[in-house]
């Protein structure tokens, strides 16, 4: 059964008299435990698609269903609760909170959870351990390297064990060596059962995925196998 079901999703923006269609009739599904990359050129609509999938950007038309829940039919702040319980996000610029240490950044999603402080600490230390940063929990983001910041961002995204991990160009700001190590980390998380949906414009990243969705001008151009090849 599909974990994510995208049906007829469209998104358009109106600027003055002009309406721009960022997404036009997108349909696909992603199974639980899958590693899927979304690829396309700059401006193709891939990041918009990711934000729609992540419950951050209400589509103009269509539905997004995750684990049987119609995301945008959720009332009020229930969508925020859903994000908090089911989703993890890794952003291109990592977006760590500058005044929180690495450990505190990882604990951030747990700040609104009813867990006990000791449980939060333990979960955050475990997540940092999983990304290989167990000794740097007390450092501020400005005191660690770009690759380490990315690892902290990943640890933050997986700390509450979400069903899906969304990543938006996670290697966009990293050198090749660090990028490869990050992609290995995503692969190992996926092998551990984590569903990963990643937006990228780097074809090399697609080799880590099981499937790649190619987006062009707001439509699904093709859905291929990992490695970028179109089936």
């Amino acid at each position: 059964m599909a974990l994510i079901e995208v049906t007829g999703v469209s998104k358009s923006y109106t600027t003055g008299d002009e309406t721009v269609a960022a997404l036009r009739g997108i349909d696909f599904s992603i199974a639980e435990g899958e590693f899927v990359t979304i690829m396309g050129r700059s401006g193709s609509g891939k990041s918009t698609l990711l934000s729609v999938l992540g419950g951050l950007n209400r589509p103009t038309g269509g539905t997004v269903t995750i684990a049987g829940v119609d995301l945008y039919a959720l009332p009020g702040e229930r969508l925020a609760d859903f994000r908090s319980q089911r989703m993890g996000f890794v952003f291109q610029s990592f977006n760590l909170i500058p005044y929180l240490t690495a450990l505190e950044n990882v604990m951030l999603p747990l700040a609104i959870s009813p867990w006990k402080p000791a449980e939060k600490q333990a979960a955050a230390r475990e997540a940092l351990d999983r990304v290989g940063l167990s000794g740097k929990g007390d450092r501020l983001p400005s005191q660690i390297s770009g690759g380490e910041q990315e690892r902290v961002a990943i640890a933050r995204a997986i700390v509450n064990r979400p069903a899906i991990l969304f990543a938006d160009e996670p290697t966009g700001n990293l050198d090749t060596g660090t990028s490869n190590r990050m992609m290995e980390l995503f692969r190992s998380l996926n092998e551990g059962g984590q569903t990963v949906v990643m937006v990228t414009h780097n074809p090399e990243n697609c080799s880590y995925a099981e499937r790649t969705i190619h987006i062009r001008d707001g439509v699904v151009e093709a859905i291929g196998q990992g490695g970028g090849g179109i089936a």
């Binding site: 702040e77 925020a80 908090s84 996000f89 952003f91 977006n95 609104i112």
Partner: peptide, 16 residues
């Protein structure tokens, strides 16, 4: 702004 965006993305409510 970015920081608040992160808070919202990871599931913080408006009231939070």
């Amino acid at each position: 702004t970015t920081e608040i965006g992160v808070f919202r993305a990871i599931g913080f409510r408006k009231s939070h």
